[in-house]
Design a protein around this nucleic acid. Sequence first.
DNA 1: TATTAGCACTTAACCACTGAGAGTGCTAAA
DNA 2: TTTAGCACTCTCAGTGGTTAAGTGCTAATA
Lengths: 346, 346
Amino acid sequence: MQMLDERNKKVLCAVVQSYISSPQPVGSRVVTKRYSFGLSPATIRSIMADLEEMGFLTQPHTSAGRVPTDMGYRFFVDALVAQKYYYSNMDILQEVYKRLEALRNNLDVFLGETTKTLSKLSHYLGIAASPGLDKTILKRIELLKFKANKVAVILFTDEGLIKNKVIYLDPEFTQKDLNRIASYLNSEFSGRTFNEIRLMVLKEMSKEKTKCDRLILKAMRICREALSFPHSDLFVSGLSDVLDLPDFADLKKIRELSRAIEDKHTIIKLLDEVSGSDGVQILIGSENSMDEMKKLSMVVATCRENGRPVGVVGIIGPTRMDYEKVIYIVDNTAKFITEMLAERWA
Amino acid sequence: MQMLDERNKKVLCAVVQSYISSPQPVGSRVVTKRYSFGLSPATIRSIMADLEEMGFLTQPHTSAGRVPTDMGYRFFVDALVAQKYYYSNMDILQEVYKRLEALRNNLDVFLGETTKTLSKLSHYLGIAASPGLDKTILKRIELLKFKANKVAVILFTDEGLIKNKVIYLDPEFTQKDLNRIASYLNSEFSGRTFNEIRLMVLKEMSKEKTKCDRLILKAMRICREALSFPHSDLFVSGLSDVLDLPDFADLKKIRELSRAIEDKHTIIKLLDEVSGSDGVQILIGSENSMDEMKKLSMVVATCRENGRPVGVVGIIGPTRMDYEKVIYIVDNTAKFITEMLAERWA
DNA sequence: TATTAGCACTTAACCACTGAGAGTGCTAAA
DNA sequence: TTTAGCACTCTCAGTGGTTAAGTGCTAATA
């Protein structure tokens, strides 16, 4: 990384800020006018030429102003985070609290609602994901006979997330059988992560021949069926708001975005990567490992309960985005949720 | 409705078909060329002028070809339905079967997957909704103590849809209490629709003072909490495919569509209106009662189980849409699901 | 009488051209 | 080291002319 003296930094930030607030290439003139350096346009020009050479800025065409590159945004954001982004706006926080406090019951609904709030406040795409079940801890399992050869499996996780699934079993079980199986499973698996359980089931089933306890065998079979849950849920909202942004005046960008949303898999993978890190994570454009997201930025934060991550919330938006505000919103939302979860067991 | 002789009808259908297959205004020339009437362009012109006067066609501007109005589409579709739309394409059906057969377990996941299939096949927006719980029949209710003062309520519906919810109760209950309450609720409410139950609860609670059975009182309170489910779920997919359609080359249209999607409420209401009717329901543009949908068309059909509607599937697309194919797809998908549900209890 | 051929008219779409405006880089002066 | 001045570049919006498609009308025709 090249050295940047104080003046260069200021000019760079001014350009980024200006471009964020309105999506026109920034010329030397507006920099001198809107951000009062004691310098003439000519000087700014030469500084901007330097910044361009270093890779922080580019020109859409020779006679246009400058536009930040991803590297430029990165510098800007890092500076922001370094100074603890003292953006603050109580109104926004109030809004978050108000909207979320009503539904502290169900983590699912809760996360869904969070995305709405995030998108409403930021005008970008609100996203949230519950963590993949792999790392989640099973609290209890219940088996309820439902209809003829159908059994409802109900999984209680440590976080208040309840998953259920109907499975079919060839031989009919009585509820008594099921109760015995369930209590066996609970004694065996309660307190373990789903991933551990999956491994244990596999191991158990491989030695099934030796130990011919039919009950255990059946239990394992149920487990195998019941644990094959789809991966973590993804909640998204705010698309229609996003379409009002000038950044998405272009059809191609919209298509990219909607493809990214629809292919939830990609986003979940991304979220999984950052989940667990502390504080706000920011991925700018090309820093994203996924192709679909190369033109977009993500700002996310992890929500925790007793230190364990229970969800990721954040927003997806154009690379040109109001990072200052968004970081503030996302950070506080995550913190708020974390606090709320702590209160729950109080 | 004005009289249309056979020839006029044919011309009208030709225009609609041509416009559906490619979104250019249809001139008298292409009608004579692509659809061999024994007539000259001049005659076609005068016929088209008549059709315009009657409101079936319009011109974008004086020297352009004709474009169907909503009324024109309606006529076309009615003709299609009248002749039992003998479009048929086994490949498409195979595809539907293959995709859906894998997951006959959970109605929720099932409907979600159906929308994906529908959108992939039609290139429009696939939609599906489970019916509002109001008309759904409760099969069984289970109460499970979960943590301190938290109780998980698990509702089994007749259709295999399982809903669950965590509720908080002030005084701690033992599992035994809960079992007693549950068995009371089951004896009282099993076999009734959620709507009926809601009414019964209200009635019961109003006379609570007279009949001071504490158990019942508590049970009612639990019910009131537990039944406040959000309305029917809506599943949507295929947005990114839709964006490739020439009809949505315009930002405004996309915005309309995405707003319609996001405001699930609107669509659910629409689906609710048509739910229960037999066969394929088609709503063309302005026939839609909701403003957001005035520029769009919907083709939907109801899935049933033992005659009772258990879901609505269909597609949303531009008014200019390949009705013939879409009707075929939607109709058969709904029928297929209905059959599958019938098999389930076999 | 219904159909057709011919013709004048309308309109959108495309193209090349132009001038204005914004912004640059370079050079020479302060 | 900074600034003023200037020539240069490029986009953008507007203009005008041409083309192609399609219409409506009228008169001729089967």
